[in-house]
Amino acid sequence: MRHLISPEDLSFEELNTLLDLANDIAHDPKKYSNCCHGKKIATLFYEPSTRTRLSFEAAMLNMGGSVLGFSSADSSSASKGESVADTIRVVSCYADICAMRHPKEGAPYVASINSRIPVINAGDGGHNHPTQTLTDLLTIKSLHGSLENITIGCCGDLKFGRTVHSLIHAMVQFPNVKFVFIAPDELKIPTYLKEEVLDPHGIEYKEVKSLEDVMPELDVLYMTRVQKERFFNEEDYIRLKDSYILDTEKMKLAKEDMLVLHPLPRVNEISVEVDNDPRAAYFKQVQFGVYARMALIMTLLGVEKPE
């Protein structure tokens, strides 16, 4: 039984195969409109995440499958005290595959070891969100053309931002990838990521505080939100929040084909005037998210690629 709990559950070859399949889906979604007919996905969302849940449901519906599930813990047996292990044993009887979102880290892993159907981690606390990573990789591969020989700037909250951590884990496998980390001291990339992931792979990276200085070098700018609650005092937050807002002035410094990605929701870290810039890829990213999830569901269910 295959599951996707962490981005590392996929080998480099499997990841590439999956991205190729997703790319094929993106080019001809109609070809896949009936390939999961008769299959059901259970979306077990213990905390609300409308966007991710709808993306999974749209993915299954796009392939002719059906969906069932719940969208908050209040409407599930968890409110009666049922364990994750028991819930998944029951759901295994109802559905062919499941996507689980849970506020507690490791809950989808617990589900996977007790499940008879493939489990997809749809986000567990601040831990993993592997389908967001697949989405990011597919967006970069499709719009930039390759995941190799690329300089990625990560900006904002790099300390707690799980999407950035997962992206780093995945990208270090590709040749000649460089990172530029743009963050205030309070939100710098954790040391363990440097020591356990970047250094062992010999990845070139630098840490800077100014977004303007590095804009011209970047092929991809991955923006994240600087959250007020991450700061010890409001003074620091007010001092720093505006330095990491992407606006048209900063975009003038960037390459003509640089991509701007963001896991969304955006608050004010990308000014709305940037939305009309052709390099703004964050809404296209949402569409690629559906294709990535379609490819993943097909792969885990063992569904053949339609002719």
């Binding site: 364990s83 994750v84 880290e105 617990v110 567990d124």
Partner: peptide, 13 residues
């Protein structure tokens, strides 16, 4: 000790 870990709410794990 992670308060966000699933073991913090599911005692039998």
């Amino acid at each position: 000790k992670n308060p966000r870990c699933i073991t913090s709410i599911e005692q039998e794990l």
